[in-house]
Amino acid sequence: MRYLLVCVLLLVACSKKPTDYREFLNGTELVYPGKVSNAQALPGDGRLQLIWQPSPDQSIVKYNVYWNNGTDSMTINSTTHNTSDTVRCTIAGLAEYVYTFIVYSYDAQGNRSVATEINNARVYGTVYKATLHNRLPEADPYLINDDNTVTLRFVTPDTINITTALKYTNQRGEVATVWVSPLEDSLKLTDYKFGTPIVYQSSYIPVRGALDTFYTSRYDTFPSILRLVQCDKSLFQEHDLWGDMGIYQSDTRVSKLWDGSVGPQDYPNIYHSDGNGSLPRALSFDMGKVYNQLSVIEETGRGCCNNPDQFEVWGIDDLTDAVPELNSDDAGWKAVMQSKGWTLLKEVARSDNGNAAVKANLMDNPPPVRYIRIRVTHCANGSNNYVNLSEITFWNKE
């Protein structure tokens, strides 16, 4: 009896036909159009672009793209079945986020392919932009060349830098724009107008192949580029102040210090003080205009003797109530000068006989200066009364 039951069951099972599944498909066949290949996402600014290679299936008429769990979609008509072509789908208006996209191929009957997923598709925006910074200049940011051109120096960019744009004023007074690539660490400006600002802005892409270029939020200002320009001696004037040294004779005046002589001079082509006092002794003069970045002094002594080897350089821009009635050899002279608004720009100490021209850098970031006082505290030959000088020259940064 058991054997008979098994045979009946086998007979019933074998009687099903291969096409019986059609009753579940309403008598139709299940068709899958060819799926796309090599799908990927190119990130952008508030948008992205999906790209893929089409299937060679000639029945495909469109592609549907879905994201946000299928709540958003886009349709792209099929125009090619050549697998060497690229289909592109740009989706805009996206929030900064990481998305997953699903791509289906469709034929004219509405049959769709197996899904193609594109994961980790990133969209960039304000959060990414906030991390961007302009490329930094080197610690020694520029070099002024002998031909008055300027070489700007930059550090190596630390991310995928595309370029850095610089805007500057040229010698014709026009605003010019130049670019430095990430592979370059310097840029030469051949027509830069000294003393004018240079601003710069860098651009980046988050990854290779990104759809958009991102710019920093603002331009930064390059460190000021100032060159040394000799102060105009034609504007210099004698301007003796209370307590200054007298002159030895009428043709050894303070004005000898800016007569343009080069190298140590001989008497009487020098400044020669009288002997009516003892060191420290001071002399003063007016440079004829205000200088905002007085930076270097060059002092040249006499060919033989009485040359200062230790002296102070003082400066101020306005003499109103600024001149102390105090001899320069008074112990309190320095403090009173400072209380009157004078700035000690430099204390110069030479180790030679004081004859040759010697340059010295003045203080960094000086205040505006028009009037100069030189206070000699020691002479190389030990003279305690006479002071001799051939020339004094100043340079201003501009």
Rank of each mutant, 00 (worst) to 15 (best):
V6H: 03
C7T: 15
C14F: 14
K16L: 11
P18M: 04
T19R: 05
Y21N: 04
E29I: 12
A39I: 14
G46K: 08
L48R: 09
Q49N: 12
I51T: 14
S55L: 05
P56S: 11
V61K: 11
V61F: 04
N64Y: 07
Y66C: 05
N68I: 04
T71R: 09
V87G: 06
I91A: 05
G93D: 12
L94V: 05
Y104G: 03
G110H: 06
A115F: 03
N120M: 13
R122Q: 13
Y128E: 06
A130P: 00
R135V: 07
V155H: 04
V155I: 11
T156S: 07
A165R: 10
T177W: 01
T177H: 03
V180C: 07
V180Q: 10
P182R: 07
L183M: 14
K193M: 14
P197E: 12
Y204D: 10
Y219T: 09
D220G: 05
P223M: 06
L235M: 08
W242A: 14
Q249T: 14
S255C: 11
S261Y: 12
G277E: 01
L279H: 02
R281A: 02
D286G: 07
R302W: 13
C304S: 15
D309W: 01
A322I: 10
A322E: 06
W333G: 01
K334Q: 09
S339Y: 01
L344Y: 08
L344A: 05
S351P: 09
D352P: 03
K359Q: 15
P367N: 10
P368I: 01
I374A: 08
N381P: 00
G382Y: 08
S383I: 10
N384V: 15
N385D: 10
L389S: 02
